[in-house]
Design a protein around this nucleic acid. Sequence first.
DNA 1: GCGACAG
DNA 2: ATCTTGTCGC
Length: 229
Amino acid sequence: MKARPLHGWDLAPQEAMALQARLRARVERADRVGAVRRVAGVDVGFEADGRVTRAAVAVLDHPGLALVEQAVVRVPTRFPYVPGLLSFREAPAALAAFARLRTAPDLILYDGHGVAHPRRFGIASHIGLLLDCPSIGVAKTRLVGVHRAPANRRGAWTPLRAAPIDGDGTGADETIGAVLRTRAGVKPLYVSIGHRVSLESALRWTLACTTRYRLPETTRQAHRLASGR
DNA sequence: GCGACAG
DNA sequence: ATCTTGTCGC
């Protein structure tokens, strides 16, 4: 599956931020998802002191969650890690991995945020938009937003809001994601809309892909491939 | 000026 | 993210 060439990647940080502000208007936050038979997990790792980026895509069937296809690529790292600009470090490598797939997935779970981002355009949204595929951001830690802790049961979640809640708790701030407990006794995950998926669906799909561990099986498989095992 | 800060 | 020892849980 090939990405739409909406822009180049050789950008300075300021240009990258301007691009995000421009593209965020094209993110779809409502469901436009067809039959989901294949779910892709994506993760990226680094080698040689960070000079080489290793991106992996693991495609699992649904609802079986068995690995049906995989792709791994190694490319030179060309952008530093800057909070809020993760796309420009990881996306080129991830898209190269997607280009190697024989069959396009129906849904993508990315290890990072979607619209729960300073400019509402995290890497999960960026990847989903360029591939024109429904996508969900599933991050292990917070980038922006405030929230309460969800109850300690699988499936419990609390909204992730864009700004501090008023002293009396009646603030009407924008909800940019959810904090989801995928398993009792472990740290919750940060789930947000990537592209073409509602937050409710994002939560449902994330749970559907998460069976016995903290992270979705899609993410676990991709991480395994990206770290070379 | 001082923290916060996906991976 | 990556590096790494010790420790806890299943």
